[in-house]
């Protein structure tokens, strides 16, 4: 009996030693020598693997940092300046400060109520629907409302608003990684500078149709009338292909253009309500209520007590 136990112990022990030796030599032979800095930097990066930097993931980005030795041309949009400072400290160089950005959905789409012209019954994928037809709202430029952007967002910052069926961005969560920008087959989402006090002015439409056609498609469409370009003190607005665009690097967020826009396509975000302008026509307001965008406060005549203006 005893020698059987001994035999088992010896056999197993010998096997263990043999495997250990083999493993040791294999590990030596195939050892990958890696700069420990890569691990350190990867640790600092957000680890969401969002691909916002253009690399395959956070580790690939860390490798790129170490390989390059400096930070030129490399930026982690998701981590922002805080992360870049940490990386800079590890690499021993100086990080350039950059404007914080945020994703902006430039469409007024609303998939409930009168605006819906047809019912889509197929695969819930924007890129497929885009190849099939114009979209439920009948706008061939606008949001399709099937949520590829929301699926692409790794930070829960972009969700489909159940009330309107359109995407909604949570500014605090958005890291401007750009995943949603790439996911949108119609190029509606844009990364824009967050702006001072998070105040931004932009054209909430990408419709390039001629005025009358665009207006027929959507009440809030940009009709390319060019009124906004005339009031802009900084020449930050350009109209091309019947579509106005506010250049965020030039815009000072004065908000003058917003009041000029006849369709409500120009919007200002995070502004305190300005002094009401009695001259506005009521025809403009109606469509605005149709497309409720919760986070957007459009300066418009409202019987609200105004404490101060921001100009």
């Amino acid at each position: 009996m005893a020698h059987q136990i001994m035999l088992a112990v010896i056999v197993l022990g010998a096997l263990g030693i043999i495997f250990a030796v083999v493993l040791y030599f294999v590990a030596q032979k195939f050892k990958v020598i890696e700069d420990p800095l890569i691990d350190e930097i990867a640790e600092v990066l957000p680890g969401a693997n969002c691909g916002g930097c253009g690399k395959a993931g956070c580790r690939a980005m860390a490798e790129a940092f170490v390989k390059q030795g400096n930070m030129e041309g490399l930026k982690c949009p998701a981590g922002g300046d805080a992360v870049m400072q940490k990386v800079a400290a590890l690499l021993g160089c100086v990080a350039e400060a950059s404007e914080p950005q945020v994703a902006v959905v430039r469409c007024n789409a609303c998939f409930t109520g009168e605006r819906t012209k047809v019912h889509y019954d197929g695969l819930r994928d924007c890129s497929f629907a885009n190849s099939l037809f114009t979209g439920e709202n009948g706008c061939q430029f606008g949001c399709l409302g099937l949520g590829n952007c929301a699926a692409a967002c790794q930070f829960d910052a972009l969700v489909m608003d159940p009330e309107t069926g359109a995407p909604k961005i949570d500014e605090d969560k958005c890291t401007a990684c750009g995943a949603c920008v790439k996911a949108c087959p119609r190029g509606i989402i844009e990364l824009r500078n967050k702006g001072r006090k998070n105040r931004r002015v932009f054209v909430n439409c990408v419709n390039k149709e001629k005025g009358a056609v665009a207006r027929k498609t959507c009440d809030n469409a940009c009709i390319g009338c060019g009124k906004c370009t005339k009031v802009c003190p900084k020449e930050a607005i350009k109209v091309e292909n019947n579509l106005a665009y506010v250049d965020y690097s030039l815009c000072i967020a004065c908000g003058k253009c917003v009041n000029e826009c006849p369709t409500g396509a120009l919007v200002a975000v995070n502004f305190t309500p300005v002094k009401p302008k009695p001259a506005e026509t009521p025809a403009v307001e109606a469509p605005k209520t149709e497309a409720p965008k919760v986070e957007i406060k459009i300066p418009q005549p409202e019987p609200v007590e105004v404490k101060k203006t921001n100009e």
């Binding site: 012209k117 019912h119 197929g122 497929f128 099939l132 439920e136």
Partner: peptide, 8 residues
């Protein structure tokens, strides 16, 4: 009612 749209 609204027309339906889907792929074939």
């Amino acid at each position: 009612k609204l027309l339906n749209i889907s792929g074939s």
